[in-house]
C-alpha cells in the first residue's frame, strides 16, 4: 500500500495496489474516478479510505483490536473479541471487501441463526469511527485494524429500519445494553451454552467450583469463544438500606468480558482471566482498578459474591 500526500485539501490519499491490479477505480487527488454506479444512473464518486488491507493487523484478528469507547454494546464487542481469540478464521470468513464498490460485506445471523448478509459502506464506517465505536482505529487515527468497526456497523445496520437516513436508530438499538447469547448468535449463528454455578444436593463448593472451571476450561480448549456476564454482587439488607456496596469482586457490574482462560494458582484456587472490552479496568470502582485490559479474579470470589451471572460458551470451530 503506497501512501501519498494529498492535494490542496491536504487529505492523504491512498493508492490501493490490489484495487489497481483488480481493475477497480481508486481516488486520486484532483481526479476522482467514480466506482459506484447506482442503478445505471450517474455514477457517484467515492473515496475509498478503508479496504481489505485495513481489516487486520499483522497478527490477524485478535481481542486486543477491541476497544469499546462510547457505545454501550459490551455484550457484542466482548463476544467479537472472544471469537477473534478462539477462532480468528471465523472473523476472516465473516468479512469480505469488494474493491469495485468499496463496500464491506459482513455475514451475521438473524434471531433464528440464519445467515444475514450486510453491506457496510465507507461512509458508514466513518460514522462508526465518529461515534468512537468498538475498534482501536478511532483512538489511534490509523485506518486499521478496522474489522471490529465493520462488524459493529453491520450489527447496527440490521437493527435500523431505514439505513438510508443514517444509523442513529440502529445504534440506539444496540448501544444501550444487550444479551451475551444474542450477540453470540448474531456473530456465530449459535446462541451457545450458558455455564452457571450450581451445587448438587450433597456437593461441596470446592467440587462445584472444579466442575464449573472444568466446563469453562474444556470450552476454551475446544476452541469455543467464551464470555463472562457480570452482575452486581449480593448485598445484605443493611447494605441496601445504607447504600453500601458489600463485598466486591473487582469486575464491572452489568458488563460482559472476553474470557481468556482459567487456571489454578499456587494456592490451588481457580483463577479466571478476563479481558475488559474497554481495554482498561480503570474506573471500575471496586478496589482493583488497573490500566491493564486484563484481570484475574478468583472463581470462588465470583461465586461467593454472586457477581458472575453466567459464562457463555459459543460453538466449536466448524
Amino acid at each position: 500500500m503506497l501512501e501519498a500526500a494529498g492535494a490542496a485539501a491536504g487529505v492523504a490519499s491512498r493508492f490501493n495496489l490490489d484495487s489497481l491490479l483488480a481493475g477497480s477505480a481508486v481516488s486520486i487527488p484532483g481526479f476522482r474516478i467514480p466506482i459506484d454506479g447506482m442503478g445505471g444512473g450517474v455514477a457517484k464518486p467515492a473515496e475509498v479510505r478503508f479496504d481489505a488491507a485495513d481489516l487486520y493487523g499483522a497478527q490477524g484478528p485478535q481481542a486486543a483490536d477491541i476497544r469499546q469507547d462510547a457505545l454501550g454494546d459490551c455484550y457484542f464487542v466482548a463476544t467479537l473479541g472472544a471469537v477473534a481469540r478462539q477462532q480468528p478464521d471465523a472473523i476472516r470468513n465473516m468479512i469480505s471487501f469488494d474493491a469495485r464498490t468499496g463496500n464491506f460485506t459482513v455475514q451475521l445471523h438473524d434471531g433464528d441463526g440464519n445467515p444475514q448478509s450486510v453491506q457496510v459502506t465507507q461512509a458508514e464506517l466513518e460514522d462508526n469511527l465518529a461515534r468512537s465505536g468498538g475498534s482501536t482505529a478511532d483512538n489511534t487515527g490509523l485506518d486499521g485494524p478496522i474489522w471490529p468497526a465493520v462488524a459493529e456497523t453491520a450489527y447496527a445496520k440490521v437493527h435500523d429500519s431505514n439505513p438510508a437516513d443514517g444509523l442513529a436508530e440502529g445504534y440506539n438499538a444496540i448501544a444501550n445494553g444487550g444479551w451475551p447469547q444474542d450477540a453470540m448468535q448474531a456473530i456465530t449463528g449459535d446462541r451457545g451454552d450458558e455455564i452457571r454455578y450450581s451445587e448438587g444436593f450433597f456437593e461441596s463448593e470446592n467440587s462445584a467450583l472444579d466442575r464449573m472451571a472444568g466446563q469453562v476450561d474444556a470450552a476454551l480448549s475446544n476452541g469455543r469463544p467464551v464470555t463472562l456476564w457480570t452482575v452486581p454482587e449480593n448485598r445484605s439488607l443493611w447494605d441496601k438500606i445504607r447504600g453500601n456496596e458489600g463485598t466486591q469482586d473487582g469486575l464491572v457490574d452489568n458488563h460482559v468480558y472476553t474470557v481468556e482462560g482459567v487456571h489454578k494458582n499456587a494456592d490451588g484456587e481457580w483463577m479466571v482471566s478476563v479481558r475488559n472490552p474497554w481495554s482498561t479496568n480503570m474506573n471500575v470502582g471496586e478496589g482493583h482498578d488497573t490500566a491493564s485490559a486484563t484481570m484475574e479474579v478468583p472463581l470462588r470470589t465470583l461465586v461467593d459474591t454472586g457477581g458472575a451471572e453466567a459464562f457463555t460458551a459459543g460453538p466449536a470451530p466448524r
Binding site: D69, G72, S132, V252, N254, W278, T280, A291
Partner: peptide, 20 residues
C-alpha cells in the same frame, strides 16, 4: 485523559444509580 473511555465513566454512574 484519553485513556478513560466514556463507557467507563457512564457505566460506573449507571451501576451506582441502579444500586440506589
Amino acid at each position: 485523559g484519553k485513556d478513560l473511555p466514556w463507557n467507563a465513566i457512564a457505566k460506573r454512574i449507571d451501576n451506582l444509580a441502579r444500586e440506589r
